[in-house]
Nucleic acid binder design. Structure first.
Lengths: 145, 145
DNA sequence: GTAACTGCAAAACTTTTGCATAGCA
DNA sequence: TGCTATGCAAAAGTTTTGCAGTTAC
């Protein structure tokens, strides 16, 4: 039991899994823990490397399985920017992403209610959106880049 | 010379290529023509099949090359929805995409100035966006689905 | 003529699948 | 104990690369 998921997070994970009739496994906990602990939008492969510090024998296929499970449970969101690997993000609040083309870093940008409404106002009659993804690319001037 | 690019479109293509010091080839013209003629957001593979009606020997690698060229020239935009193949789109006006999870169809949604401004208002100081992508997924009720 | 582009094949990369084994409930 | 999840390997799918031959300028 080397995974260091906080009690509250572990409970949340367990509840969410149980709600779907799924089991708690150390692999799922460890993948979730990795995503929570460093919110830098890692790819499945990034996550594999990090999880292996705790679980050296975990396979990439299992990481993909765990990620799919976490996404299905609504604990994690997947992000597709340009044509590179899918990235994963524990931020469940409405937000956009900004990818800096110089550093490659990805930033979360919070979205206020007003912007959310404005954004959904472009949906024509009959279009019912369950999900949206907004991403910017560009550069970040100076700052902590 | 079996490609049926309209005179104006051909001129636009030629000018854009010339501006970058690139050559006009029938492959590039044909790929461009295919994207312009049916705005259903085809993948590279879709485009290959359509272009081969005119140029039976064109290869997938060439299609990818042509697409990259057209995107670099600003004549075509690439669209990444979920984790499937990249799609291509000749609509250069600011717009969003909506993918119907039932039919799989992708719709362009126009964006007015106000929404564009609202959308960019979430960028923090120092963040300079060169590009954005907004996509919705959901269902389309009745209508011409 | 020559540098750029194409076509082909192979490689690289990401993600999925099938199946035997392990482990949670 | 039974059934789900994991680990491994192989497959599938998308995109890129290297190179010889072709073509636009």
């Amino acid at each position: 039991m080397s995974y260091t998921l906080k009690t509250q997070d572990r409970r949340e994970l367990h509840t969410a899994l149980q709600k779907k009739g799924l089991r708690s496994t150390k692999q799922r906990a460890s993948v979730y823990e990795v995503i929570l602990s460093k919110k830098d939008h890692p790819t499945a492969d990034d996550i594999l490397i990090r999880v292996r510090k705790n679980l050296p024998t975990i396979s990439l296929a299992t990481v993909y399985n765990c990620l799919e499970t976490l996404v299905d449970c609504g604990l994690v969101r997947q992000v597709n920017l340009d044509r590179s690997s899918t990235r994963f993000c524990p931020n469940l609040t409405p937000h956009a992403h900004f990818k800096c083309s110089e550093s490659g870093k990805i930033f979360d940008l919070n979205m206020d209610e007003e912007t959310m409404e404005s954004l959904h106002s472009i949906l024509p009659k009959g279009f019912q959106s369950q999900n949206f993804e907004l991403s910017f690319s560009g550069t970040v001037k100076h700052l902590s880049n």
